[in-house]
Write a protein that binds this DNA or RNA. Sequence first.
RNA 1: GUGGGUAUAGCGUAGCUGGUUAACGCGUCAGUUUGUGGCACUGAAGACCGUCGGUUCGAAUCCGACUAUCCACCCCA
Length: 428
Amino acid sequence: MELLRRPNGTEDILPSVSRDWQVLEGMLRETAGSFGFSEMRIPTFEQTELFERGVGETTDVVQKEMYAVVAGNDRFTLRPEGTAGTIRAILQNGMLNEALPLRVYYILSCFRHEKPQAGRLREFHQFGVEMIGSPQPSADAEVISLAGRILERLGVKNTQLHINSIGCPTCRKAYHTALKAYFEPHRAELCETCQERLNKNPMRLLDCKSPECQAINKDAPMITDYLCESCSEHFEKLKANLTMLNIDYTVDPKIVRGLDYYTKTVFEFVTTDIGAQGTVCGGGRYDGLIGQLGGPETSALGFGMGLERLLLTLKNQGMTLSQPQGCDLYLVPMGDAAADLCLQLTAALRKEGISAQTDVMGRSLRAQMKYADKIGARFTAVIGDNELEQGEAALKNMQSGEKLTVKLDDSFTEHFSAIEIADRLSKD
RNA sequence: GUGGGUAUAGCGUAGCUGGUUAACGCGUCAGUUUGUGGCACUGAAGACCGUCGGUUCGAAUCCGACUAUCCACCCCA
């Protein structure tokens, strides 16, 4: 029988790393909570049209990276990102009638049919945040500061915050015209994709990494010079707020998000420690999206964080989030009667929150001791005929080798607890 | 979608100027005399050498295709 393989671009999260995920997720929840955000959970798939309208029909994500789900005559799509579905759920459940601003977060998996590489998977996990209802720059500052706080708490090093404003539809129109006017004379010198972009979305030209295009980009007009009064004020105020909050940033006129819904503020946290896909967090304001999805015109913004990228960054920086599972006490039975008692004792220990194990392999004493050592048991106790007769057993501290005698009666758990706590304290 | 690299036991590797039972380290399991782990020693299990086809008397070793994987472009988290 041939073994079936996991689909390309997906990952199995094995016990050796699942604890990192648990710690990471716990920390995300806690930090988001401290900023007043509550969790939302939405379906893994949505009507395809939601993404076409929300993310934008001309985007790469929608045009060539979506996983279609066909069931009977219905057409759905596995979510390629979290914002569209979250906004849909907010509208469908009338949540805009709740106290504004709405602050929600989610931890979910996203699906994009791209070619996998370092930091890029076909199923990846995202922590995302949406803050709905405020057009104020202070809202932008709050959201960015949440992202920054998370990175800080995780101990991620070498990340940089890049911000930009891509304006509202009004100022963007003027900017497009200016860009076209600038690039048109250079058309022949541009790379092929950029010649395309010049027609469709000139802002994308700024992103290009090909040396020829970058040389031309250098002197291209900057969006920041074309922002309308209100967008420009918004951006200035945001920068002032960030400075006030001691959040370092660099204005990077070249950030252009690839999702259509962004307006005004866009930002990303970038690292150089994980290869080419260095964006660990990306987000921005999307004042037009809710209207586009059929809701009332409402200001909003948010960000997404790639959890695999976060974990990869930490790993490459030599950081660890979690310790292995471990075991407080391993009971070594010798003989059937002892085995029964050990089974009962482990059950009793666990009720008190102690992680306990005993033999389920029928192994020899020596083999059991080796096993206890391998799983990192902090204490062991051999229980055989002698112990059963005397009604007490020697508790061995695996690190120091020290032994203590404990009675094998109802007080066992209690006594072990005391010894275990004492041991823990002596190490601090 | 486009380029380039790689593909040998669970993991990490050697072998790759073609020639009998594919090697090593780690890990796993058992044991080193009868009741105590870490070290050391002994032994065992575990690989149709990614798949298919070609060249050849003969291929892990040469060639091709496919698949997977990695890196980069693109795009994004």
